[in-house]
Amino acid sequence: MNRLEKVVNLLKDNNLDAIYLTNPSNVNYITGYTDEEAYALISKYGNFVITDTRYIELAESLCKDFEIINWHLFDRSIPKTLKEVCIKTNIKKLGFEKNNIIFDNYNTLKCELEPEGIHLIPSENIVEELRYIKTQDEIDNTKKACMIADKSLEELIPHIKIGVTESELAAKLEYFMKINGANQVGFDTILVSGTKTSLLHGKPSDKVLENGDLLIIDYGANYNGYISDTTRTFIIGSANERQLELYNLVKEAQLVGLENMKPGVHATHPDTKIREVVKKYEDNYYRGLGHGVGRDLHEEPFLGNYGTKTIKEGCIITMEPGIYFPGWGGVRIEDTVLITKGGNEILTKFPKDLMILDKQ
Protein backbone atom coordinates (compact mmCIF):
# COMPACT_ATOMS: atom_id res chain seq x y z
CA MET A 1 0.00 0.00 0.00
CA ASN A 2 1.48 3.34 -1.03
CA ARG A 3 1.32 6.61 0.91
CA LEU A 4 -1.67 7.90 -1.01
CA GLU A 5 -3.67 4.75 -0.34
CA LYS A 6 -2.79 4.93 3.35
CA VAL A 7 -4.10 8.50 3.57
CA VAL A 8 -7.38 7.50 1.88
CA ASN A 9 -7.78 4.70 4.42
CA LEU A 10 -7.16 7.15 7.26
CA LEU A 11 -9.87 9.41 5.84
CA LYS A 12 -12.36 6.60 6.38
CA ASP A 13 -11.17 6.17 9.96
CA ASN A 14 -11.66 9.91 10.56
CA ASN A 15 -15.07 10.07 8.81
CA LEU A 16 -13.77 12.49 6.16
CA ASP A 17 -14.41 12.66 2.44
CA ALA A 18 -11.11 14.44 1.84
CA ILE A 19 -8.27 16.30 3.49
CA TYR A 20 -6.75 19.62 2.45
CA LEU A 21 -2.98 19.59 3.07
CA THR A 22 -1.18 22.90 3.62
CA ASN A 23 1.91 21.81 5.57
CA PRO A 24 4.69 21.86 2.90
CA SER A 25 6.39 18.81 4.42
CA ASN A 26 3.17 16.82 4.25
CA VAL A 27 2.41 17.98 0.70
CA ASN A 28 5.87 16.91 -0.39
CA TYR A 29 5.67 13.58 1.44
CA ILE A 30 2.37 12.61 -0.17
CA THR A 31 2.68 14.13 -3.65
CA GLY A 32 6.43 14.16 -4.38
CA TYR A 33 6.26 17.89 -5.17
CA THR A 34 9.57 19.53 -4.23
CA ASP A 35 9.11 23.29 -4.57
CA GLU A 36 7.01 25.93 -2.80
CA GLU A 37 3.46 27.31 -3.08
CA ALA A 38 1.58 24.06 -3.50
CA TYR A 39 -1.28 22.42 -1.62
CA ALA A 40 -2.94 19.05 -1.93
CA LEU A 41 -6.45 17.69 -1.67
CA ILE A 42 -6.64 13.94 -1.08
CA SER A 43 -9.96 12.12 -1.37
CA LYS A 44 -11.56 8.82 -2.27
CA TYR A 45 -12.96 10.59 -5.33
CA GLY A 46 -9.71 11.95 -6.74
CA ASN A 47 -6.42 13.59 -5.78
CA PHE A 48 -5.31 17.10 -6.63
CA VAL A 49 -2.25 19.33 -6.37
CA ILE A 50 -3.17 23.02 -6.28
CA THR A 51 -0.47 25.45 -7.33
CA ASP A 52 -0.06 28.48 -9.58
CA THR A 53 1.19 29.27 -13.07
CA ARG A 54 4.85 29.41 -12.03
CA TYR A 55 4.92 25.77 -10.93
CA ILE A 56 2.42 23.96 -13.15
CA GLU A 57 5.03 22.36 -15.40
CA LEU A 58 7.07 21.16 -12.43
CA ALA A 59 4.00 19.76 -10.65
CA GLU A 60 2.89 17.92 -13.80
CA SER A 61 6.29 16.28 -14.10
CA LEU A 62 6.52 15.24 -10.44
CA CYS A 63 2.96 14.44 -9.37
CA LYS A 64 1.86 11.75 -11.80
CA ASP A 65 -1.01 10.42 -9.67
CA PHE A 66 -2.60 13.84 -9.21
CA GLU A 67 -4.69 16.24 -11.22
CA ILE A 68 -2.88 19.59 -11.26
CA ILE A 69 -5.09 22.63 -10.62
CA ASN A 70 -3.95 26.21 -11.33
CA TRP A 71 -5.60 28.40 -8.72
CA HIS A 72 -4.82 31.50 -10.80
CA LEU A 73 -7.66 30.37 -13.08
CA PHE A 74 -10.21 30.71 -10.27
CA ASP A 75 -9.99 34.47 -9.68
CA ARG A 76 -6.56 33.84 -8.13
CA SER A 77 -8.40 32.46 -5.10
CA ILE A 78 -7.51 29.21 -3.37
CA PRO A 79 -10.84 29.10 -1.47
CA LYS A 80 -12.73 29.37 -4.77
CA THR A 81 -10.49 26.69 -6.25
CA LEU A 82 -11.22 24.35 -3.35
CA LYS A 83 -14.92 25.03 -3.66
CA GLU A 84 -14.94 24.07 -7.34
CA VAL A 85 -12.93 20.89 -6.71
CA CYS A 86 -15.20 19.87 -3.83
CA ILE A 87 -18.35 20.48 -5.87
CA LYS A 88 -16.89 18.56 -8.81
CA THR A 89 -16.04 15.53 -6.65
CA ASN A 90 -19.03 15.72 -4.29
CA ILE A 91 -16.89 16.32 -1.20
CA LYS A 92 -19.01 17.33 1.80
CA LYS A 93 -16.70 16.70 4.77
CA LEU A 94 -13.33 18.35 4.17
CA GLY A 95 -10.63 17.91 6.78
CA PHE A 96 -7.90 20.54 7.18
CA GLU A 97 -4.64 20.63 9.10
CA LYS A 98 -5.69 22.63 12.12
CA ASN A 99 -2.11 23.26 13.27
CA ASN A 100 -1.11 24.77 9.95
CA ILE A 101 -3.77 27.30 9.03
CA ILE A 102 -4.23 30.78 10.45
CA PHE A 103 -7.66 31.93 11.58
CA ASP A 104 -8.09 34.46 8.79
CA ASN A 105 -7.53 31.80 6.13
CA TYR A 106 -9.86 29.41 7.91
CA ASN A 107 -12.56 32.07 8.07
CA THR A 108 -12.23 32.82 4.34
CA LEU A 109 -12.46 29.11 3.51
CA LYS A 110 -15.49 28.66 5.73
CA CYS A 111 -17.32 31.57 4.11
CA GLU A 112 -16.65 30.14 0.65
CA LEU A 113 -17.38 26.47 1.33
CA GLU A 114 -20.16 26.25 3.89
CA PRO A 115 -22.86 27.91 1.72
CA GLU A 116 -22.27 25.00 -0.68
CA GLY A 117 -22.83 22.45 2.07
CA ILE A 118 -19.11 21.69 2.37
CA HIS A 119 -18.14 21.37 6.03
CA LEU A 120 -14.63 22.12 7.30
CA ILE A 121 -13.47 19.62 9.91
CA PRO A 122 -10.23 20.15 11.87
CA SER A 123 -7.80 17.25 11.71
CA GLU A 124 -4.44 16.56 13.28
CA ASN A 125 -1.49 14.27 12.53
CA ILE A 126 -3.09 12.24 9.74
CA VAL A 127 -0.01 12.46 7.55
CA GLU A 128 2.41 12.87 10.46
CA GLU A 129 1.43 9.43 11.74
CA LEU A 130 2.61 7.96 8.43
CA ARG A 131 5.88 9.91 8.69
CA TYR A 132 6.65 8.59 12.20
CA ILE A 133 8.46 5.48 10.93
CA LYS A 134 10.87 6.17 8.08
CA THR A 135 11.08 4.15 4.88
CA GLN A 136 14.43 2.87 3.59
CA ASP A 137 14.54 5.71 1.07
CA GLU A 138 14.03 8.26 3.84
CA ILE A 139 16.73 6.59 5.94
CA ASP A 140 19.16 6.65 3.01
CA ASN A 141 18.54 10.36 2.41
CA THR A 142 19.05 11.14 6.10
CA LYS A 143 22.28 9.15 6.16
CA LYS A 144 23.53 11.15 3.19
CA ALA A 145 22.62 14.41 4.95
CA CYS A 146 24.58 13.23 8.00
CA MET A 147 27.62 12.30 5.90
CA ILE A 148 27.60 15.75 4.29
CA ALA A 149 27.38 17.40 7.70
CA ASP A 150 30.20 15.31 9.16
CA LYS A 151 32.53 16.07 6.25
CA SER A 152 31.74 19.78 6.37
CA LEU A 153 32.50 20.13 10.08
CA GLU A 154 35.76 18.25 9.55
CA GLU A 155 36.69 20.78 6.86
CA LEU A 156 35.80 23.67 9.16
CA ILE A 157 38.09 22.57 12.01
CA PRO A 158 41.33 24.11 10.61
CA HIS A 159 39.55 27.48 10.35
CA ILE A 160 38.54 27.58 14.03
CA LYS A 161 41.10 29.88 15.60
CA ILE A 162 41.38 32.66 18.13
CA GLY A 163 40.37 35.95 16.52
CA VAL A 164 37.95 34.50 13.96
CA THR A 165 34.33 35.64 14.28
CA GLU A 166 31.37 33.38 14.86
CA SER A 167 29.66 34.70 11.73
CA GLU A 168 32.66 33.92 9.54
CA LEU A 169 32.80 30.34 10.81
CA ALA A 170 29.05 29.83 10.37
CA ALA A 171 29.24 31.10 6.78
CA LYS A 172 32.14 28.77 5.98
CA LEU A 173 30.36 25.77 7.48
CA GLU A 174 27.22 26.45 5.44
CA TYR A 175 29.37 26.91 2.33
CA PHE A 176 31.10 23.58 2.92
CA MET A 177 27.75 21.82 3.32
CA LYS A 178 26.50 23.12 -0.01
CA ILE A 179 29.79 22.32 -1.75
CA ASN A 180 29.62 18.80 -0.32
CA GLY A 181 26.18 18.13 -1.76
CA ALA A 182 23.53 19.61 0.53
CA ASN A 183 20.52 21.01 -1.30
CA GLN A 184 20.42 23.63 1.42
CA VAL A 185 21.23 23.95 5.11
CA GLY A 186 18.88 22.04 7.36
CA PHE A 187 18.21 25.04 9.60
CA ASP A 188 19.83 28.27 10.75
CA THR A 189 23.29 27.39 12.05
CA ILE A 190 23.86 27.91 15.78
CA LEU A 191 27.51 28.80 16.32
CA VAL A 192 28.23 30.63 19.57
CA SER A 193 31.23 31.02 21.84
CA GLY A 194 32.21 32.08 25.35
CA THR A 195 29.38 33.01 27.69
CA LYS A 196 26.98 32.93 24.72
CA THR A 197 27.07 29.12 24.86
CA SER A 198 24.47 29.29 27.62
CA LEU A 199 22.03 30.50 24.92
CA LEU A 200 20.57 27.24 23.64
CA HIS A 201 19.65 28.77 20.27
CA GLY A 202 22.10 31.65 20.17
CA LYS A 203 22.88 33.37 16.87
CA PRO A 204 26.33 33.80 15.31
CA SER A 205 27.60 37.36 15.60
CA ASP A 206 30.76 39.39 15.07
CA LYS A 207 32.09 38.15 18.42
CA VAL A 208 35.62 36.81 17.98
CA LEU A 209 36.82 33.54 19.46
CA GLU A 210 39.03 34.04 22.49
CA ASN A 211 41.39 31.87 24.49
CA GLY A 212 39.42 29.75 26.95
CA ASP A 213 36.10 30.03 25.10
CA LEU A 214 33.63 27.22 24.86
CA LEU A 215 32.32 26.90 21.30
CA ILE A 216 28.99 25.23 20.44
CA ILE A 217 28.19 24.36 16.83
CA ASP A 218 24.66 23.06 16.19
CA TYR A 219 24.02 22.58 12.48
CA GLY A 220 22.57 20.35 9.81
CA ALA A 221 22.40 19.61 6.11
CA ASN A 222 19.30 19.08 3.99
CA TYR A 223 19.57 16.37 1.35
CA ASN A 224 16.57 15.51 -0.86
CA GLY A 225 14.30 17.09 1.75
CA TYR A 226 15.74 15.22 4.75
CA ILE A 227 17.62 16.91 7.57
CA SER A 228 20.58 15.98 9.75
CA ASP A 229 21.11 17.54 13.17
CA THR A 230 24.44 17.54 15.00
CA THR A 231 25.93 19.49 17.90
CA ARG A 232 29.53 19.47 19.03
CA THR A 233 31.15 21.53 21.76
CA PHE A 234 34.80 22.57 21.54
CA ILE A 235 37.19 24.55 23.72
CA ILE A 236 39.43 27.23 22.24
CA GLY A 237 43.05 27.64 23.30
CA SER A 238 43.09 26.21 26.81
CA ALA A 239 40.52 24.57 29.10
CA ASN A 240 39.83 24.99 32.79
CA GLU A 241 38.74 22.29 35.24
CA ARG A 242 35.09 23.32 35.28
CA GLN A 243 34.85 23.12 31.48
CA LEU A 244 36.47 19.69 31.47
CA GLU A 245 34.16 18.42 34.21
CA LEU A 246 31.08 19.66 32.43
CA TYR A 247 32.13 18.29 29.04
CA ASN A 248 32.86 14.83 30.42
CA LEU A 249 29.56 14.81 32.32
CA VAL A 250 27.53 15.71 29.23
CA LYS A 251 29.42 13.13 27.18
CA GLU A 252 28.57 10.47 29.76
CA ALA A 253 24.95 11.63 29.83
CA GLN A 254 24.67 11.33 26.08
CA LEU A 255 26.11 7.83 26.16
CA VAL A 256 23.53 6.80 28.75
CA GLY A 257 20.79 8.38 26.65
CA LEU A 258 21.93 6.46 23.57
CA GLU A 259 22.00 3.20 25.51
CA ASN A 260 18.35 3.75 26.42
CA MET A 261 17.08 4.52 22.90
CA LYS A 262 15.56 1.37 21.43
CA PRO A 263 12.23 0.03 20.16
CA GLY A 264 9.47 -0.20 22.74
CA VAL A 265 10.99 2.39 25.07
CA HIS A 266 8.77 5.27 26.14
CA ALA A 267 9.99 8.75 25.16
CA THR A 268 10.40 9.72 28.83
CA HIS A 269 12.75 6.83 29.66
CA PRO A 270 16.11 8.17 28.35
CA ASP A 271 15.51 11.42 30.23
CA THR A 272 14.92 9.53 33.48
CA LYS A 273 18.23 7.70 33.12
CA ILE A 274 20.17 10.85 32.15
CA ARG A 275 18.89 12.73 35.20
CA GLU A 276 20.62 10.11 37.35
CA VAL A 277 23.92 11.08 35.67
CA VAL A 278 23.51 14.88 35.79
CA LYS A 279 21.79 15.12 39.20
CA LYS A 280 24.57 17.42 40.52
CA TYR A 281 23.57 20.00 37.90
CA GLU A 282 19.97 18.95 37.28
CA ASP A 283 18.71 22.52 37.72
CA ASN A 284 20.85 23.51 34.72
CA TYR A 285 19.95 20.51 32.58
CA TYR A 286 17.61 21.31 29.70
CA ARG A 287 14.67 18.93 29.50
CA GLY A 288 14.43 19.11 25.69
CA LEU A 289 16.48 15.94 25.31
CA GLY A 290 15.75 15.07 21.69
CA HIS A 291 13.24 15.08 18.87
CA GLY A 292 12.33 13.22 15.74
CA VAL A 293 13.91 14.58 12.58
CA GLY A 294 13.04 14.00 8.95
CA ARG A 295 11.36 16.39 6.53
CA ASP A 296 10.91 18.73 9.48
CA LEU A 297 13.61 19.55 11.98
CA HIS A 298 11.29 18.85 14.90
CA GLU A 299 8.91 15.89 14.64
CA GLU A 300 7.53 13.25 16.96
CA PRO A 301 8.75 11.56 19.03
CA PHE A 302 9.94 14.27 21.42
CA LEU A 303 12.25 12.89 24.12
CA GLY A 304 12.08 14.31 27.64
CA ASN A 305 9.96 14.19 30.74
CA TYR A 306 7.05 15.52 28.67
CA GLY A 307 7.26 12.86 25.94
CA THR A 308 4.08 11.02 24.99
CA LYS A 309 5.16 8.51 22.34
CA THR A 310 6.80 5.11 22.28
CA ILE A 311 10.04 4.80 20.30
CA LYS A 312 9.70 2.42 17.35
CA GLU A 313 12.04 0.74 14.90
CA GLY A 314 12.53 3.11 11.97
CA CYS A 315 12.22 6.32 13.95
CA ILE A 316 15.02 8.85 13.47
CA ILE A 317 15.60 10.88 16.63
CA THR A 318 18.23 13.23 18.04
CA MET A 319 19.93 12.67 21.38
CA GLU A 320 21.17 16.02 22.69
CA PRO A 321 21.64 16.46 26.44
CA GLY A 322 23.00 19.82 27.53
CA ILE A 323 23.85 21.71 30.70
CA TYR A 324 23.84 25.52 30.71
CA PHE A 325 24.86 28.19 33.21
CA PRO A 326 23.57 31.69 32.35
CA GLY A 327 26.44 34.16 32.14
CA TRP A 328 29.06 31.40 32.13
CA GLY A 329 28.34 29.05 29.24
CA GLY A 330 27.15 25.58 28.40
CA VAL A 331 27.90 22.24 26.78
CA ARG A 332 25.72 20.19 24.41
CA ILE A 333 26.49 17.04 22.43
CA GLU A 334 24.00 15.83 19.82
CA ASP A 335 23.69 13.05 17.30
CA THR A 336 21.06 11.99 14.78
CA VAL A 337 20.10 8.40 15.62
CA LEU A 338 18.23 5.68 13.72
CA ILE A 339 16.25 3.25 15.87
CA THR A 340 16.97 -0.29 14.71
CA LYS A 341 15.52 -3.70 15.57
CA GLY A 342 18.26 -4.39 18.07
CA GLY A 343 18.83 -0.88 19.42
CA ASN A 344 20.09 2.10 17.43
CA GLU A 345 22.60 3.34 14.88
CA ILE A 346 24.30 6.71 15.29
CA LEU A 347 24.17 8.39 11.88
CA THR A 348 26.34 11.42 12.69
CA LYS A 349 29.90 10.17 13.00
CA PHE A 350 31.95 13.26 13.91
CA PRO A 351 34.11 12.37 16.96
CA LYS A 352 32.93 13.24 20.46
CA ASP A 353 36.25 13.13 22.29
CA LEU A 354 36.91 16.67 23.49
CA MET A 355 38.82 18.77 20.96
CA ILE A 356 40.78 21.76 22.25
CA LEU A 357 41.43 23.86 19.16
CA ASP A 358 44.17 26.43 18.49
CA LYS A 359 46.00 25.32 21.63
CA GLN A 360 48.10 27.94 23.38
Rank of each mutant, 00 (worst) to 15 (best):
residue 222 N to P: 01
residue 262 K to Y: 15
residue 237 G to D: 04
residue 252 E to F: 05
residue 249 L to F: 10
residue 236 I to A: 10
residue 261 M to I: 15
residue 226 Y to A: 06
residue 229 D to Q: 02
residue 254 Q to T: 07
residue 228 S to V: 08
residue 260 N to G: 03
residue 234 F to W: 00
residue 257 G to I: 08
residue 222 N to C: 10
residue 241 E to Y: 12
residue 225 G to N: 09
residue 241 E to C: 09
residue 230 T to Y: 12
residue 258 L to Y: 00
residue 244 L to F: 04
residue 250 V to W: 13
residue 239 A to S: 15
residue 236 I to G: 06
residue 244 L to R: 08
residue 222 N to W: 00
residue 228 S to A: 12
residue 247 Y to T: 06
residue 256 V to F: 11
residue 230 T to R: 13
residue 246 L to C: 12
residue 250 V to T: 13
residue 260 N to P: 00
residue 242 R to C: 03
residue 260 N to A: 02
residue 224 N to G: 00
residue 250 V to R: 12
residue 253 A to Y: 11
residue 233 T to C: 09
residue 260 N to L: 02
residue 245 E to C: 08
residue 230 T to D: 12
residue 246 L to S: 11
residue 255 L to E: 14
residue 258 L to N: 00
residue 234 F to E: 00
residue 245 E to N: 12
residue 260 N to V: 01
residue 256 V to S: 13
residue 228 S to R: 08
residue 222 N to S: 07
residue 249 L to R: 06
residue 248 N to E: 08
residue 249 L to V: 05
residue 245 E to S: 12
residue 255 L to P: 00
residue 238 S to M: 14
residue 255 L to R: 14
residue 237 G to I: 04
residue 227 I to M: 04
residue 235 I to D: 01
residue 238 S to F: 12
residue 225 G to E: 09
residue 251 K to M: 04
residue 241 E to D: 14
residue 249 L to N: 07
residue 238 S to C: 13
residue 237 G to A: 04
residue 258 L to E: 01
residue 231 T to K: 07
residue 240 N to L: 01
residue 242 R to W: 10
residue 250 V to D: 09
residue 260 N to C: 03
residue 262 K to G: 10
residue 223 Y to M: 06
residue 224 N to F: 03
residue 238 S to D: 15
residue 249 L to M: 14
residue 237 G to N: 04
residue 249 L to S: 05
residue 232 R to P: 00
residue 232 R to F: 01
residue 242 R to P: 00
residue 257 G to K: 11
residue 231 T to H: 07
residue 250 V to Q: 11
residue 252 E to Q: 14
residue 234 F to T: 02
residue 228 S to K: 07
residue 258 L to D: 02
residue 250 V to S: 11
residue 241 E to A: 13
residue 246 L to Y: 14
residue 262 K to V: 05
residue 253 A to E: 10
residue 238 S to L: 15
residue 261 M to D: 01
residue 225 G to F: 09
residue 227 I to Q: 03
residue 244 L to P: 05
residue 240 N to M: 03
residue 255 L to M: 13
residue 222 N to D: 07
residue 259 E to D: 14
residue 234 F to R: 00
residue 256 V to R: 13
residue 246 L to F: 14
residue 251 K to P: 03
residue 246 L to A: 11
residue 244 L to V: 08
residue 243 Q to F: 01
residue 259 E to R: 15
residue 227 I to S: 01
residue 255 L to D: 10
residue 248 N to F: 08
residue 224 N to W: 01
residue 249 L to A: 07
residue 236 I to Q: 09
residue 234 F to D: 01
residue 257 G to W: 05
residue 254 Q to N: 13
residue 253 A to R: 09
residue 256 V to C: 11
residue 255 L to Y: 13
residue 225 G to L: 10
residue 228 S to E: 08
residue 241 E to S: 14
residue 230 T to L: 15
residue 248 N to M: 03
residue 246 L to I: 15
residue 225 G to R: 09
residue 239 A to H: 05
residue 228 S to Q: 09
residue 261 M to K: 01
residue 222 N to A: 03
residue 257 G to N: 09
residue 234 F to L: 01
residue 244 L to Q: 04
residue 229 D to V: 03
residue 249 L to C: 08
residue 260 N to F: 03
residue 245 E to P: 08
residue 248 N to C: 02
residue 223 Y to S: 06
residue 252 E to Y: 05
residue 239 A to F: 04
residue 234 F to K: 00
residue 230 T to P: 07
residue 230 T to H: 11
residue 223 Y to C: 05
residue 234 F to S: 01
residue 257 G to Y: 08
residue 253 A to D: 11
residue 236 I to P: 03
